[in-house]
Amino acid sequence: MRRKGRKQKEVRTLPNVFHGKPEEISDSLVKYFRNEKPLVLELGCGNGEYTLALAQKFPDKNFVGVDLKGSRIWTGAKKALALSITNAAFIITKADRLHLIFNKPVVEEIWIPFPNPFPLRKSIKQRLVHKRFLDVYGKICLQEAKIHLKTDAEILYQYALTVIEEEKLILVAATDDLYSSDLYKEENTIQTKYEQQHIKDGKSIKYVCSRLQ
Rank of each mutant, 00 (worst) to 15 (best):
Q197C: 01
H19C: 10
V64P: 09
A88G: 08
L98F: 08
T51Q: 11
L134D: 05
V163C: 03
K94A: 14
P113A: 10
E187K: 15
F133P: 01
T189M: 14
N103Y: 02
K200R: 14
A145Q: 04
D176K: 12
A82E: 14
T162F: 10
Q197E: 13
L81Q: 11
Y157K: 04
F133I: 06
D60Q: 14
Y207V: 00
R121M: 06
G202T: 04
K206H: 15
I110M: 11
D201N: 11
S210F: 15
I155H: 06
H130A: 15
C45Q: 09
G202V: 06
W74A: 08
P119L: 03
Y179N: 07
K146D: 07
I147E: 08
F114G: 07
L142P: 08
D67S: 08
P59V: 13
K31Y: 07
P115W: 01
T192E: 11
V129Q: 09
E10S: 09
L39T: 04
T13A: 10
Y137C: 09
V106E: 14
D135P: 06
S84E: 15
L142V: 14
S71P: 00
R121N: 09
R12T: 12
Y159E: 11
P115A: 03
Y194A: 06
L68Y: 14
V64Y: 02
K131G: 01
G65M: 06
G70H: 07
L100R: 13
V40R: 08
A160P: 02
V11I: 10
A173N: 07
K37P: 02
L156D: 02
I124D: 11
A153W: 08
Y207F: 14
K57W: 00
L41Q: 05
L29S: 03
F63Q: 06
L83A: 13
M1V: 04
S123P: 00
P113M: 08
S28A: 15
P59S: 14
L83F: 10
Q196P: 02
K94C: 09
V64T: 11
V66P: 04
K206I: 06
L134R: 10
E165C: 03
I124R: 12
E186H: 09
V66L: 13
V17G: 01
H198P: 00
Q196M: 12
C141W: 00
N116D: 15
P119A: 09
F102K: 03
P15A: 09
P22T: 10
E108T: 13
K4W: 07
V172G: 07
K78Q: 11
H148W: 02
Y32S: 09
A174I: 03
L142K: 15
N103I: 11
L98A: 04
I73E: 04
E166T: 03
F102E: 02
I101A: 02
P38M: 09
L83G: 00
S71Q: 10
Y184Q: 10
S28R: 13
V136N: 01
I110A: 10
E186C: 04
G5Y: 07
F118H: 15
L156V: 09
A53D: 11
F118T: 07
G202I: 04
Y159M: 01
G46R: 08
M1D: 12
Q126Y: 10
M1N: 12
C141S: 14
Q56N: 15
V107A: 09
K79H: 04
E167G: 02
A88R: 10
Y194Q: 11
H99T: 06
K150I: 01
S123L: 13
